[in-house]
Simulated assay, not measured.
Amino acid sequence: MDLVLNAADYYFFTPYIYPASWSEDDIFRQTISLLIITNLGAYVLYFFFATLSYYFVYDHSLMKHPQFLKNQVYREITFTVQSLPWMSIPTVSLFLLELRGYSKLYDDIGEFPSWFHLIVSVLSFLFFTDMLIYWIHRGLHHRLVYKRIHKPHHLWKIPSPFASHAFHPVDGFLQSLPYHIYPFIFPLHKVVYLSLYILVNIWTISIHDGDFRFSELLDNSGFTET
């Protein structure tokens, strides 16, 4: 995240926003800047790619499904817009730790033994995060937390791409946590990490652009929905 912050400082914050006397290394200034960048980036990614998916990928006939709610797209967007700033607060605390040098992110490709190791790091990132998200998601379905934290996301039984980030803030942060803790455990190039972070958000949108229910398979297997 320091790559993004450095660019924002150079082109925007330092010349136009903050007084010249306020050091770019000041932790309070960095926190404010990261909050702005994280929220702005999240909204841009969400609206840009969800809108593309909605108009060019999404099957609009799904909106005629009886379980598609009245004004659902508007409600998905509203839910997301209200939740993202709350998700950003704990996220920024982790970005701040990265910025202060506590992670294993690195700048120079020469710091890694070979391109092979770089590729392996990408694969391990995908494996590590997907595995943890599976268990986190499974835990969120526990009866003690499901109703308050995870159930709001399942309100959208026939989701549109705009449901992709429509989480309770705690739910949204917990399911993004593996992506943030990976570079504190394993080395990863900063550009690769930033690219993967963007791709993960696009992927999240892509898995909410269709009807992925499997009730028909269950019915054909002799089971019934509960």
Rank of each mutant, 00 (worst) to 15 (best):
L188W: 04
I185K: 02
F212K: 11
R213M: 08
Y197E: 11
L196D: 09
L194R: 05
S176T: 12
H208C: 01
D209M: 03
K190I: 06
H189A: 04
H180Y: 15
I198F: 08
S176I: 07
I181L: 12
L199K: 06
I181N: 14
S195Y: 08
K190G: 04
D209V: 01
H189W: 12
F214T: 15
L194K: 06
I181C: 12
L177I: 02
I181K: 12
I205H: 05
F186T: 04
P183M: 00
I205A: 04
Y182A: 05
I205S: 04
P187D: 01
V191W: 05
V191K: 03
H208K: 07
F186P: 00
V192Y: 03
K190D: 08
F212P: 00
L188E: 03
I198C: 12
P187I: 03
H180T: 07
H189N: 14
Y179M: 05
F186H: 01
P187L: 00
G210C: 00
I205F: 05
I202E: 14
I185G: 01
V200K: 09
S206C: 09
S176Q: 11
K190Y: 04
Y197A: 11
L196K: 03
F186A: 02
S215T: 13
S176H: 10
H180W: 09
P187Q: 00
Y197K: 01
I181Q: 14
F186W: 03
L194F: 10
V192S: 09
D211S: 05
